[in-house]
Write a protein that binds this DNA or RNA. Structure first.
Lengths: 376, 376
DNA sequence: AATATGGATGAATCGATTG
DNA sequence: TCAATCGATTCATCCATAT
């Protein structure tokens, strides 16, 4: 895992997909040109934030704040930063599969430019997600609000791409059975998770917490997917992807970061298949025709169905349709019609009387589905 | 208060500052041209969001969602929206005092374009503030994360303006003696605060809560300051400004909104000097997702949970659900399922073995809650 | 008079499959 | 490619009505 390939080696090996689960050394845009079109399922990008720091910053006790002042975060103007942003986003767009999605994280220094450029390039914004930091750095001068969050943009390749991966049911089940919101709460990366060098200095100034990446990856990818991180840094994306049974591709310029990331990822133990199975909902279940209930003898032609409160009733016909008040149609169409609605889920609307109580015909569909499950 | 002046009247009366505490009827940019340079201390702008809605949306109960489809929110392209944004921001910049600040609120549909243009026009971003909605509208189709926040940008007129108003100590004192963070929690505007017409219909589709405006105004203005709102709508800015002893200027095109806002503001009773302090409310115990335990490392995927008497067991999966006997679900659903019940409190039912004894996972939730207690 | 229940609603870029 | 069909999908809160 996590072999480090110079760009030259990579280009000769694309056919064997040797770039899977490796870190490509080189400039982001140039390295991306070596990847095939539509070759990755998802992208997580943590680009330079273009922080505009005036001078040095001291805490109230006069200790020096170790700010992000690396060369890679220096841009001479918004125009230069915009050109850089457009270039790497375009390159990412080409390698992204048509139904793939991209995540970009940033702060108020850069995220507005990034978001506008994403829209200009026809990415279709699905959500902006707020990472609320449990333990953000205070504002030492007391001149602003404490900058306690960062923003992530989640987008599909274009507006027409409707089949992107979103594990809605799993997220909901893991969140007290209510849907996951756009504001997430996580601690910043610190303690034993934070990579340090031999001198105890942090390896990377903006290492992201694994919990954040875990939710990103669990929500919008499937096991076996390929996740690209064009600004790999300390390799959080790769470490979490490996642990969660996904593949990764990282791009990084600095050898120190590559070395630290490769060692980190090598130490990761992937989870087993059982632990990685994702909870799915009804949408993922096989379709069952209402006719199958008749054929299985679970309901019979002539039988009366009603809604849960017995306000409406209909008769089952031998062809698998229902009739009521001289009208006929599928369980869905007729359910909609009697209520005066445009649409209706007939499976949950229509009920049958089992002698004791009214039960939705959806329970009979479950019987059929359980029988089907034994066959494979 | 709140006299409504047609633009023509205004221009002849500028010297007497007759526009103070009034609503100017007219187009935003044209009306702004009639105001003197450097004449307002702060600006709060709630521009059109440029929502691009495909068709109609129904709730699961088939009721129709009353979407924002007003003419004033329709733009033919990003270019047109950008030009509009640049025009009103430039006009605002001219009337803003050198040490004044501006707030702009938006959603992911427009806020990235707005923020980038503000930077291009040399506004200096001080913070982005996240309004976390207590009670946002759900995502009915389960295709995205629940869009549970909006974003505000707070900026000074330019980078050199260091003497802007920021009531740091008052905010801190009103916030349990810790710095005010960049993520704010407020309910949406509803109930008796929401303006309704005689038919019970909402007067304005996007009326903002007064609590939100109150924090904006208390944090970045002084009593007696002039606050401009170039998209006045239902007049929340004016109502809160009057109550908090500030002056306002509103600009609005639609007569219906002007009438409603004028009546609303007329009914406001200004607070006395002593009462101009911010109130905060403690919320009930925060909801904790089971996923938070995994993300915090308190439990791990693959780990086995049992009930208190070890009659039932289940395995934790990486997506935050449990699985047992080929079935899966949330801690609550699966707890109910294995027992054959309709419902179950998974927090007290499922236990983990800490090496000495079985303990309910509810104890781990307490650990998380203690961390959270600092935040809400 | 409290409490319970049902309905309404909010800045929303909100399908997938088959014929 | 388009049209028809199947059938999946909601949270917190407020208010009106019923018990």
């Amino acid at each position: 895992m996590a072999a480090v390939l110079p760009l030259a080696d990579l280009q000769g090996q694309v056919r064997r997909v040797s770039w899977l689960n490796s870190i490509i050394k080189g400039d982001c845009v140039a390295a991306l040109e070596a990847l095939p079109d539509h070759s990755v399922d998802a992208i997580f990008a943590d680009p330079p934030y273009n922080l505009q720091l005036g001078g040095t910053l001291h805490r109230p006790d006069q200790s020096l704040v170790d700010a992000v002042d690396d060369d890679w975060d220096q841009f001479s103007s918004f125009e230069v930063y915009d050109a850089f942003t457009r270039a790497w986003l375009l390159a990412c767009r080409r390698v992204l599969k048509p139904n793939g999605t991209i995540w970009v994280i940033g702060s108020y220094h850069n995220i507005f430019r990034v978001g506008a450029i994403m829209q200009d390039l026809n990415f279709w914004l699905l959500n902006d997600i707020v990472w609320r930091k449990v333990n953000p750095m205070p504002n030492f001068k007391g001149r602003r609000f404490q900058n306690a969050h960062e923003t992530m943009i989640w987008a599909s390749r274009d507006a027409k791409a409707k089949s992107y991966t979103f594990n809605y049911d799993a997220l909901k089940a893991s969140n007290e059975d209510v849907q996951m919101r756009s504001d997430w709460l996580f601690p910043i990366c610190s303690g034993s998770e934070r990579l340090k060098d031999d001198d105890g200095k942090k390896v990377h100034p903006t290492q992201k917490p694994e919990a954040l990446l875990a939710r990103v990856i669990m929500s919008s990818t499937k096991p076996g997917d390929v996740i690209l991180d064009p600004f790999f840094g300390s390799g959080t994306t790769g470490a979490v992807a490996k642990r969660l049974g996904r593949n990764f591709v990282g791009i990084e310029r600095e050898q120190d970061y590559i070395d630290a990331a490769a060692a980190r990822i090598a130490a990761v133990e992937p989870l087993g298949k059982a632990e990685l199975t994702v909870m799915t909902g009804k949408k993922a279940e096989p379709r069952v025709a209402f006719n199958a209930l008749i054929e299985a003898g679970l309901v019979r032609p002539g039988q009366v169905l009603t809604d849960a409160r017995r306000r409406f009733s209909a008769i089952i016909r031998a062809d698998g349709t229902l009739s009521a008040n001289g009208e006929a149609g599928s369980i869905h169409r007729l359910g909609a019609k009697v209520q005066g609605f445009d649409a209706c889920n007939g499976w949950t609307f229509w009920h049958f009387d089992d002698g004791q109580s009214l039960k939705p015909i959806d329970e009979l569909r479950t019987v059929i589905r359980n029988d089907l499950a034994k066959l494979d």
